[in-house]
Computed example of a mutant assay.
Amino acid sequence: MNERNEPGLGELLRYVSDLVEHGAEEHYRQMGLQYRARYTPVLRAIQAGAKTVTEITARTHLTQGAISQTVGHMENDGVISRHRVEDGRKSSIRLTPHGKELVAKLNQHWSATFAVIEELEGEIGHPLRRILEDAAKALERQGFAQRLTHIKLGQPRGIDQ
């Protein structure tokens, strides 16, 4: 048991995520934008050529449900519009004129964001993005629940079991 009550991995990840998101949202306010940080992965995927929720999901590390919910908010905020494709089963997502104007303003912010991430990684002496990517890949190979089961059963660590 953790007697010193140190924060767990999930708690630390959420805390760092909140610090980053709140800082970004404060900067959006300073820029005079009514913008939600959760729109960023969707907008960046659209910029990269994604046209449907499925394509956006494939380009992000978010669930289809989270993307669908975010797309709904973005549509309500007038950032994107949906248009039925030929077979009628899916809809194509496009930036509205407001969305295009927003992205033009955000491109400079996103460049600065990646510069800040590089600065942060230099300050802490760790390639934070690489560490998180490696952790995600390891958990994709063997999930956290499976790892817990192995520990509880006293089984040796390994993904081949």
Rank of each mutant, 00 (worst) to 15 (best):
M1L: 07
N2D: 09
E3S: 05
R4L: 13
G10W: 12
G10H: 08
Y15F: 12
V16G: 01
V16Q: 06
H22G: 03
A24K: 07
A24I: 12
E25F: 09
E26F: 13
H27G: 04
H27R: 15
Y28F: 15
R29C: 13
M31G: 09
M31L: 15
Q34C: 07
R36G: 07
V42I: 15
L43V: 04
R44F: 09
R44P: 05
A45Q: 00
A45P: 03
I46R: 01
Q47C: 00
Q47H: 06
Q47V: 03
A50T: 04
A50N: 04
K51M: 07
T52S: 05
I56R: 02
R59G: 04
R59V: 06
R59T: 06
T60K: 07
A66S: 15
A66K: 08
S68F: 12
T70K: 05
V71K: 02
V71N: 02
G72F: 02
H73M: 07
E75P: 05
E75V: 05
N76W: 02
N76E: 10
S81W: 03
G88M: 08
K90A: 01
I93H: 01
P97G: 03
G99P: 00
L102V: 09
A104C: 08
K105R: 15
H109Y: 15
W110G: 04
S111R: 06
A112E: 11
T113V: 14
F114M: 05
F114P: 01
I117A: 03
E118N: 05
E118M: 05
G122V: 01
I124P: 02
G125I: 04
P127T: 02
L128R: 01
I131T: 08
I131Y: 13
I131E: 11
A136C: 13
R141S: 10
R141L: 15
Q146G: 10
Q146Y: 13
R147W: 10
I151D: 08
G158D: 11
Q161N: 14
Q161C: 14
